[in-house]
Write a protein that binds this DNA or RNA. Structure first.
Lengths: 163, 163
DNA sequence: CTACGTGCAAAGCTTTTGCATGGAA
DNA sequence: TTCCATGCAAAAGCTTTGCACGTAG
């Protein structure tokens, strides 16, 4: 996955999550901690099932229900956000500790390329203001064919397939 | 729903659809025609169920399966496009005969307000070009609270609710 | 006669929920 | 004791699909 570089983070995600939970009189259980840790172990796009697969039926893991419930909480907490929907699944990514951005999504290979979105964010701020709309966020999926997929098939390093 | 004004259309949607079907060796059946006509009768956002409700079990209508299948075809044909997902349902709108735009979606009342997106389209063109990405379209959902919902509750024309 | 379409019902999938059990404060 | 949480299994809900029957060309 094409990635933008990380920004230094003052408060680690887990602490941020604990804070959030406190405001709702909820606890940072071992299951919840396992999930946040897993999610933040790498900066990659993911869907619920990725973590269900890895955490379910494992000690120190969490059940399917808990994964779904926790992802919901992480979203509320502003730690992750839904960025797209692929194969009928919601795709999430970190929304904390990284610069805001949107995605180019290749219809052929599914590759998601990130790009910074300051300009777009500004435009949206202005438009929202004009409508008296209190914007809390946005989801922008740009679809098309990525450079690799639109390039004609390479024959290099391949045997000729015609005699 | 807040709407932008329509543009004059040279070829009617039904004909456009017929053309498209021809290229796939498919026919414009009465069912398909009923669906396109219904969809283009008003310029409103809709989901599959809207038309299932109105067309199923009615003569001159179409079954649930056919509605779903036809919406897929209309999308392929470029006549409609998915603009959002609400209550687990895909929401479509016309993508032919109207200026391009995006939406402000109120998290409280669900209202979708359209706004023209030329600037955003231009920005995206540039970004796509920079990445060698062949953009075919985009989906932008701006979420937040609309003007009406963020306004403090009006007491006017209401009895005082404290004695 | 062949290919394309429809409708019905069943299946598919992800995500949500009810409920009993268990543990922290 | 009283909440809050987990896990399991079942439910939910939209969308897709298999299949048999029709029908346009």
């Amino acid at each position: 996955m094409a990635e933008l570089s990380a920004m230094p983070v003052a408060v680690p995600p887990v602490d941020k999550f604990r804070e959030f939970l406190l405001t709702k009189r909820m606890r940072l259980t071992p299951e919840r901690e396992a999930i946040v840790t897993a999610v933040y172990a790498t900066h990659e796009h993911f869907d619920a099932d990725v973590w269900v697969e890895k955490l379910e039926r494992r000690k120190g893991g969490a059940s399917r229900s808990t994964v779904y419930r926790t992802l919901g909480l992480l979203e509320e907490a502003g730690l992750i956000r839904k960025v797209a929907r692929t194969n009928d699944r919601e795709v999430y990514e970190h929304d904390y500790g990284y610069p805001h951005h949107d995605h180019l999504i290749c219809k052929k290979c599914g590759e998601m390329t990130e790009f910074p979105n300051e300009v777009i964010a500004e435009v949206l701020e202005r438009i929202a203001a004009e409508h008296g709309f209190r914007m809390s966020g946005h989801r922008l999926e740009v679809e098309g064919i990525c450079a690799t997929c639109s390039r004609p098939p390479q024959r290099l390093h391949r045997k000729l397939d015609m005699i």
